[in-house]
Design a protein around this nucleic acid. Structure first.
Lengths: 204, 204
DNA sequence: CTCGCGTTTGACCAAGTGGTCAAAATGAAG
DNA sequence: CTTCATTTTGACCACTTGGTCAAACGCGAG
């Protein structure tokens, strides 16, 4: 029952509750820093009740990771070889930035996992993620070779999109502390800045 | 004794050992995920022995943070108002990138702390860090106003330097997983890419 | 309304946690 | 080589941790 298959209404409800709670807790404290009690409390369930749905803390984390992975990679999947190059990349960047704004916990969940050495998703990074990135990097490389984009290392270009957009979710405490209380929402400025940045970097 | 003042030779040696060990452990597991036993083992000391030098786990963490903070902010402090604008910014970026290469544990220590909401350094972010960034952002703003750099939001420009450079320390597992075993050192390419990036962004 | 299966819980456990303490070991100054 | 402050340690403590289990509960199909 690592990936629980919800059959009853109650199961669906509680697994959803647990996922929500686990997302909040794991994304805030990292795997080792989180406790089953915390997750149970956040989900309004008793600890044994929670462990009736998932066999262990590990299992909750695994379930979370694999259910969120698709959502996380989707924007890159949608990068379209036949689209207008600069527009495709700007759209990808904006979708990633939107995910930082709308799903910061998911972003921090992955950030925590990777900063701590990705012990539980390392294999996935080397297979699924690498394959997807390699494919799309070659698409971008093609665009550059055809003179539609200024030349630049496409792998590092993708890294830079990740790092620049996820920064606003993962390090938002820092961003908000530096910008101060009179700028409570950094996202409009961030979008403008990043649009300018990638436009200048990629326009020939 | 939150900031231990080493008086004897033995104290100096052991406090150094503990700092080293704590840096490794905290940067890998985050504060809550780390244990005093782990740190003691890594430092080759017994737990009570370690707690003879620092009163608590918190105290070790605080001591580490404050001793590393200066090192961490130094590169930005050196940004010189009277230097050649583009060169100053590229130099700053390169120094930050070097720190990611040479001191990845320090980078991850801060990353862990900030991703998890910076509970222990929040105040410092709002004072010391904000003041320094505000000062330097205004310098950059001046350069742009004088037509020495292409216009862009200077605060977000600084954020982008942080995020792009620290990415190679904080997320290095991911970077290495994506680039594969035939590219074990991403830094030369990263430096070339980031130099190109900031040059294109800031050249008028 | 009742029966059975799915659900919930209180009590419990072994291991790990941060931290204490008195006593033993050790280093260095005279 | 003695003396005393510094350093080190084993034993210990209260609390938290992930996880178990038998027993009780309650929802819905018949």
């Amino acid at each position: 029952m690592t990936q629980p298959v919800a059959r009853t209404r109650i199961q669906r409800k509680n697994i959803a509750l647990i996922s929500e709670a686990a997302l909040s807790v794991f994304s805030t404290w990292g795997f080792r820093g989180s406790t089953v009690d915390q997750i149970a409390k956040e989900a309004n369930l008793s600890k044994p009740n929670l462990l009736y749905y998932f066999p262990s803390k590990e299992a909750i984390h695994q379930y979370l990771m694999s259910s969120l992975l698709e959502t996380w990679l989707d924007p890159l999947r949608e990068l379209d070889e036949n689209g207008e190059p600069l527009d495709e990349i700007l759209t990808y960047m904006r979708r990633k930035l939107q995910m930082s704004r709308d799903h910061p916990r998911e972003s921090r969940l992955f950030a925590n996992e990777i900063v701590q050495g990705a012990p539980r998703i390392h294999e996935m990074l080397e297979t699924e993620l690498k394959e997807l990135v390699d494919e799309k990097a070659r698409v971008i490389q093609g665009w550059m070779a055809d003179g539609h984009l200024a030349p630049a290392d496409p792998w590092h270009l993708i890294f830079s999109i990740w790092s620049l957009t996820q920064h606003y979710a993962d390090f938002d405490v820092q961003v908000k502390a530096v910008l101060g209380p009179e700028k409570p929402d950094p996202f409009p400025d961030a979008e403008a800045y990043l649009t300018t940045l990638f436009t200048r970097v990629l326009t020939i």
